[in-house]
């Protein structure tokens, strides 16, 4: 049935007079100066209800512990084999009353009950970010699966400030996305939200209620400036 449907649909489309292919008009996405880029990213993602904390490459796990302690977080999911996951585990092991770490180290079929209900927060890295719209760019991987940024009520994302691109168009072109798209690429611009009830914003309808961005300072650039 499907094969016949396919050939009939394509035959009908081919029978129609082909339209002229319009030429691509000039369009350039916005670009920012170095100092604007970072400020734009922060302003945009904060406007979308995310929390941004500027952190150092070495001390962020300590900082994160106090941020999460204020929110009463007790169980944190991490990707145990990523650089961030390992750094967090190493530092928190030595800290008194750090939240418990739960590793996403098994398939969802095994971890589903924990993921769906028993985790307060998850920490992921990001591939980059976008200044124009205040957006995080994630390419989930076997080490850092898709549901980490979706099921827990709080998503903590590490963004290295030197990875902030001007726009999605620039990022896709610079990194040649079209040549090798991953299973899933996701852009995140704030916590989960809805305005379906009388256009009143409410957060955390299905995904995270809070998005915490840890913006990692570019220490080399900082040192040069000093």
């Amino acid at each position: 049935m499907s094969d016949n449907a396919r050939s009939r649909i394509l035959a009908r489309l081919r029978a129609a007079a082909p339209g002229p292919v319009p030429p691509r008009p000039a369009w350039t996405p916005p670009t920012y100066l170095a100092e604007e880029r970072r400020a734009r990213f922060i302003a945009m993602i904060e406007a979308a209800h995310a929390e941004v904390h500027e952190v150092d490459q070495t001390t962020w796990p300590v900082r994160l512990r106090s941020i999460l302690a204020n929110k009463g977080v007790r169980r944190v999911m991490t990707a145990p084999t990523t650089a961030a996951g390992q750094q967090l585990a190493a530092v928190w092991a030595d800290l008194a009353d750090a939240p418990a770490l739960i590793a996403y180290d098994q398939p969802v079929e095994v971890l589903k009950p924990v993921l769906v209900r028993d985790v307060d927060a998850a920490v992921t890295m990001t591939r980059g970010a976008i200044a124009e719209t205040g957006t995080l760019v994630l390419w989930p991987s076997p080490a850092e699966p898709r549901l980490m940024s979706l099921l827990p009520p709080i998503h903590v994302a590490l963004v290295e400030e030197w990875r902030i691109a001007d726009s999605l168009a620039a990022l896709m072109a610079d990194e040649s996305w079209a040549a090798a798209m991953p299973t899933n690429a996701v852009l995140i611009s704030g916590p989960s939200k809805t305005a379906d009830i009388e256009q009143t914003l409410a957060y955390g309808v299905h995904g995270p209620k809070e998005l915490i961005v840890l913006l990692v300072r570019d220490q080399e650039a900082g040192a040069a400036a000093v």
């Binding site: 945009m44 719209t133 957006t135 299973t183 899933n184 852009l187 611009s189 704030g190 989960s192 995904g207």
Partner: peptide, 12 residues
């Protein structure tokens, strides 16, 4: 300016 999520699916 953008939706909260842009979900790009390329394979199972």
């Amino acid at each position: 300016p953008i939706t909260t999520y842009v979900n790009m699916i390329t394979s199972p």
